[in-house]
């Protein structure tokens, strides 16, 4: 039985790897701590699709989930397990900031750890970035790894 939980956001890239490394170190220091490694497939139920895409959606979703588990989450889970830390991998569809916060609440996590993606310029100004929205809306402390 672990006493502490940390939600870690993976992105399949550098930033996620940094977040994972930091969270693993934290978990070891805490001693009794479980990591929830979360990969979110960007998805909105309010997007527009063609009939053909709709007809194949269920199949595509299964493929996306399988791919994300196999390529991103499972290697990360294995790496953390090898370090002797309790870990669970989760793949979800939706908005990254919303899902991370929802899962933190659901599992009673003490903090969320994410890597800074480093968007610059117009894109950052327009969309605010995932980390920015997470910090504004999160119900638990958020640690951002530069």
């Amino acid at each position: 039985m672990t006493t502490s939980t940390i939600v870690v956001g993976l992105d399949g890239g550098e930033a996620g790897a940094r977040a994972l490394a930091f969270a693993t170190t934290q978990a070891k220091l805490i001693g009794s701590c479980e990591l929830k490694l979360v990969y979110v497939i960007e998805w909105s139920p309010f997007s527009f699709q063609t009939s053909e895409e709709n007809a194949q959606r269920h199949k595509r979703r299964e493929e996306e989930l399988a791919l994300a588990r196999e390529r991103i989450v499972e290697p990360a889970v294995k790496q953390v397990t090898d370090d002797g830390v309790t870990v669970q991998g989760i793949v979800r569809h939706g908005d990254v900031a919303d899902i991370l916060d929802d899962l933190a609440k659901k599992h009673g996590a003490q903090q969320i750890v994410v890597g800074r993606v480093g968007l610059r310029g117009l894109k950052e100004r327009m969309f605010g970035g995932v980390t920015g929205r997470l910090v504004v809306a999160s119900s638990v402390p958020v640690t951002i790894i530069p």
């Binding site: 998805w43 139920p45 309010f46 997007s47 699709q49 709709n54 979703r61 569809h93 939706g94």
Partner: peptide, 25 residues
């Protein structure tokens, strides 16, 4: 609005999408 949509079904075709697709036709 998705009030009755199961969050575990996220990523599947939503009511909104089915309606929007039908409307675009």
């Amino acid at each position: 609005k998705g009030d009755y949509s199961d969050p575990d079904d996220a990523g599947e075709v939503s009511h909104f999408q089915a309606l929007a697709t039908a409307l675009s036709g």
